[in-house]
Design a protein around this nucleic acid. Structure first.
Lengths: 181, 181
DNA sequence: GGTTGCATGTAAAACGTTACATGATTTT
DNA sequence: AAAATCATGTAACGTTTTACATGCAACC
């Protein structure tokens, strides 16, 4: 009953409705990818493993002459999904290259910090825009919507934070202040 | 001149001063680990590669009878560091298991969402506390301090967000409201 | 007839964590 | 004397990305 991290996204998606690997990938790209990504080379082998272990069951459901495997959650799989959901979340990982550059910005003179802040702000603003577009295409079901709002709120906060610091930096420069290294 | 992601943390740290692999790891654990982690098994081989490529130079500097290799940035390495700092940041990755559980919380009845929000809030509050401890032990140099404040501000925002949603959830439950799925 | 979308997969490489292994020095 | 800290590394494992590979169907 070993389930890889990616496996839980699959179980979760199949908890909503039966679908193909392709559909799972599409849904992930449209929703969880901002905080939990998955690629085809993870999804397809994992579908097979989960089926081997009896957590999901696949069935050939060709659409026209196009082959297609639709997977559904088995009762065992649903139990595994529930038990995972009830456990405390453990993974929280962040990799923010902008923050790293900002951290080391002192070794260059002047431009790195404002430019990095500007790029980081732009990034978060783009994410907000994309999430708002998703929001506009039809509000998702209960908790998915809560997570969507979280994404919007957090990215707005981060963008605003960068904006404030850029302003503070520009002001400090204008008044001729030099930070004490 | 291939530098791995971890390589840039090394270059950045050596941009401040010469140090050993052990010191780099200690500094990372104390500072960048919240947004850019690195382990010994990445650091030591990467130190060798960077030295082979001439971006850094190592020198045996035993402390007493204890062997110790101190690395310093070469002019080529400093150039590579600067050029990296001047490029736009690209990597922004997040893996938030709590958010994933919240996303799928609809498949269980009732407890998952509030419990996950509570755990997530507790996590962010713990991070704030650890960062405040770091802040108290002596304010770091300019931009490192900016990044520290970012960590504190963001995690406080996230914790508060969870708190608000928990409250909203409890209130909705009390007034007997059921969300329209 | 060409592009986009649906659909499934593999192979190789890159990246990262955990566990293992060792040993000296300093502090309690 | 024991524990913590300084110090360096490897091996195995697990995870993830990127590139490759194929083919049908629907739309323009």
């Amino acid at each position: 009953m070993e389930v890889t991290p990616t496996g839980y996204v699959i179980l979760g998606m199949l908890g909503w409705r039966s679908m193909s690997g392709y559909e799972i990938k599409s849904l992930v790209d449209y929703s969880t990818r901002f905080f939990w990504a998955a690629s085809y080379s993870q999804i397809y082998p994992e579908l097979r493993r989960l089926a081997d272990e009896g957590l999901i069951a696949g069935e050939a459901k060709p659409q026209g002459g196009r082959k297609r495997n639709e997977y559904r959650l088995t009762p065992v799989g649903r139990k595994a999904l529930r038990s995972w959901l009830e456990r405390e979340p453990e993974v929280f990982e962040l990799r923010d290259e902008g923050l790293l550059k900002l951290f080391f910005a002192g070794v260059t003179d002047g431009q790195t910090a404002p430019a990095t802040l500007e790029a980081k702000q732009a990034h978060h603003e783009e994410v907000v825009q994309r999430l708002r577009e998703i929001e506009a295409t039809g509000t998702p079901e209960g908790f998915a919507y809560m997570v969507l709002r979280y994404g919007i709120d957090c990215n707005e906060f981060m963008a605003a934070w960068c904006q404030r610091e850029r302003h503070a930096l520009a002001k400090a420069k204008a008044t001729g202040k030099r930070k004490a290294a």
